[in-house]
Design a protein around this nucleic acid. Sequence first.
DNA 1: TCTGGGGTCCTAGGACCC
DNA 2: TCTGGGGTCCTAGGACCC
Length: 428
Amino acid sequence: MGNRNFRYKGSMIALVDCNNFYASCERLFRPSLINKPVCVLSNNDGCVIARSQEVKDLGVKMGAPAFKCKEIFDKNDVAIFSTNFPLYGDISSRVMGVLSQFTNELDVYSIDEAFLHLKMYDADYHQYGLSIRERVNRWVGIPTCVGVAETKTLAKLANHVAKKFPQLKGVHVIDTIEKRDKALKWAKVDEIWGIGRKSAEKMRYYGILTAYDFVQKSDSFVRRHFSVVGLRTKKELMGIPCFTLANQPTGKKSIMTSRTFAKYVTDIDGLNEALASYVSSCAYKLRKQSSCAQTIMVFVHTNKHRKDKPQYYNSQSMNLPVASNCSTEILGYAKELLKNIFYEGYEYNKVGVMVSNIIPQEQVQGNLFDKIDRGKHGRLMQVMDNINEYGGRGSIRLASQSYSKGLSKRESLSPEYTTKWSDILEIR
DNA sequence: TCTGGGGTCCTAGGACCC
DNA sequence: TCTGGGGTCCTAGGACCC
């Protein structure tokens, strides 16, 4: 058979994925940390959410509770950072900006990865991948890996291969049947994009250990045991595209904001303060995508890890009389919901709000009995957003929002080097 | 003492209708 | 007493992703 090429080699998908993204972002402004172990922790410095290669090599697992890793961190002089999403978001958009120079069809999949549709009939995809890496690295300073193949799922797999085999120089192209089979035989089922813990377990039960084993199964078997989701994944692994590229970003269908507290809250006033910030954040994100929500949901819960204490979880949702993106209006309803589900006697460690049934702003149907001056509210929100965008988040807030960020613990926060005037680096 | 946050899609099952 | 066979819509929860 030789190295028979795929029929549609002229149209391929590249997946560019940033290596250890948050850790790499933190390193950007701290060159002394290059080749040193760097670790980023979740909200409240609770658990590990990003690790540089050196930290992975130390055996620190993703999601590991930080307090359990303290010894390893101390012993190996690991640089620890609290999450700094404004920084990561800004670096991400710079990376995406560079990537958009390589294609007309950029599908930004997450904060640290994007699919690129490549249509090049005689091009050397491996060389092209190398030049993508090189430019992102030079212009933004973030290391990446590139996987190229016929479908998204295969591109993901190619990327995985590129990450695991350093001799590939960060780029792997699957463009022949042989390379595809080789990758499929190498990949364990739990490494396939779309196959999670549950499905992988089930597959092992049926003796399916590798991606190659999986594609050998009949469509009907896969459909029956792993639903249409599994079947799509199988087809994608065989080079039949089932996931199309999303050319323009679509608005979110639901938006949620919630935080775990660093200390327990027992009274409703404390929860209300937190709720006010979360509602503001949700409403702001709605306004940013020019949409309104028709449904809101509020939930509270106690610390589920403390089995020795009384546990409580509850949520309540409601449909708004008129779809809204106004912070003050949504907060009014959210407080009512919270009042309904709040009970004294529990130590709460989390409250959250989710808005859903989101529609474009211009499609909002008025209500005959609406007493709210929506034009005025809209202008007020606009003014608030302008002040916060210029002066930094939190420059102006609702009266009921807490003044300090006292409910969260972020002891190792890096500056917002690129998004806050006061945090810009000074070169002397 | 200390265990994240934010999304999407699919399915099963119930309510309801003819 | 027996107790069909569709269809639709909605919701909760599961699985998965980063």
